[in-house]
């Protein structure tokens, strides 16, 4: 869609570079504000912990959205990849604690992501041969196996690696509000850029019609595995941030319910909508904290909301709508310049 003529007027576009510049500037402003607020204790310590968890959950929801919303599969093992990333980066950070944290932390996260992506590859190749519910079950099985292995690996290895049920302790708590949201922003940007690329379009075409896209010469196996691995990679990064946020890891927190929790965020937000995933991740992380006073009832309310939402708005909060600041600005720009000409709806 370059310059589109609508009713004689030229539709003016913002240059892509300018769009990126505006978005980056706004994101930087957001980061600076939120960091300043957290550093000066305007946001209390416990609230800034909630903020970090929100950032981790945003990454988790957005990354699962790649496999669910964009690729159209239903994996139920996202917590497994998160666990792999969390343990990998936690072990790395523990052993690299002598080196400067600012340098080692990103390395640890990326390492966690890469190992999770490797697991995604190993699991994805057999799992993606299956479809629908069977894929859900097999990924659930793999993630439960990951959990059981983390729990029991020490007895096989003969030395303490993951410390099993006794929890892995003394992980450097390097996650801050700043770097959690920085990483959340980076992940959202990479996923956005990926989905706008040729490869992203191939992934979307598989969701829309697998047979048709295969007959158009798209290697569905390759792109399904790619999407799945990307999803696992970002889940691994989220896991690393989570490890640095908590400072202590136990396999129990990466059970089947964790995967469901992330899936609920994606579905509530609207499948295939990044904005929806982000909103749902923020809401579903913040709401239970806000409802602490009613803690007995909050899970009951939560489940009722979930059921009501699916009955009355099954497509999720946002449906497949995605917000684009550039697009909004363009519409404003064109309205101002040509107020008399009606925009062609077709």
């Amino acid at each position: 869609m370059d310059k589109v003529k609508t009713g004689g007027a030229v539709y003016r576009r913002l240059p892509t570079g300018l769009r990126y510049l505006i978005n980056t500037a706004l994101f930087a402003l957001f980061l600076i504000t939120i960091t300043a607020l957290a550093d000066n204790r305007v946001i209390s310590y416990s609230d800034s912990k909630v903020l970090m968890l929100i950032a981790v959950n945003i990454i988790l929801a957005v990354s699962l959205n790649v496999a669910t919303g964009y690729l159209g599969q239903l994996p139920l093992g996202h917590a497994g990849f998160m666990a792999v990333g969390a343990y990998t980066s936690a072990l790395f950070m523990r052993s690299a604690s002598a080196y400067p944290g600012q340098l080692m932390f990103p390395l640890g996260l990326i390492l966690g992501g890469l190992v999770a992506a490797l697991f995604g590859l190993v699991i994805g190749i057999p799992a993606l041969r299956l479809k629908g519910d069977y894929l859900a079950i097999i990924t659930l099985g793999f993630s439960e196996i990951i959990r059981v292995v983390i729990l029991n690996i020490d007895s096989v290895l003969g030395f303490k690696l993951t410390f099993g049920a006794a929890s892995l302790k003394n992980i450097p708590t390097t996650t801050t509000v700043f770097n959690a949201f920085l990483w959340a922003g980076i992940v959202c940007f990479i996923i956005h850029a990926m989905m706008k690329s040729r490869h992203g379009r191939a992934i979307l075409s598989i969701r829309d019609n697998e047979i048709a896209s295969e007959s158009c010469g798209i290697s569905t196996t390759f792109y399904k595995t790619l999407g799945f691995c990307a999803s696992a990679f970002f889940a691994g990064i989220a896991g690393g941030l989570y490890a640095g946020y908590l400072g202590i890891l136990s396999p129990g927190s990466f059970g089947f319910m964790k995967s469901i929790e992330i899936l609920v965020m994606v579905v509530l937000g609207g499948m295939g909508s990044m904005l929806g995933s982000i909103i749902a991740a923020v809401a579903l992380t913040a709401l239970p904290e806000l409802l602490r006073a009613f803690s007995d009832y909050r899970m009951v309310v939560y489940s009722l909301v979930l059921i009501a939402m699916m009955i009355f708005r099954p497509e999720g909060l946002m449906g497949s709508y995605d917000f684009s600041l550039g697009g909004l600005l363009e519409r404003l720009l064109n309205r101002k310049s040509a107020p008399l000409i009606k925009e062609d709806e077709s």
Partner: peptide
């Protein structure tokens, strides 16, 4: 079908 699945999860939580 996914909405149905999420509803089932909701009922289970409830």
């Amino acid at each position: 079908r996914l909405s149905l699945l999420i509803t089932a999860i909701g009922v289970s939580y409830l």
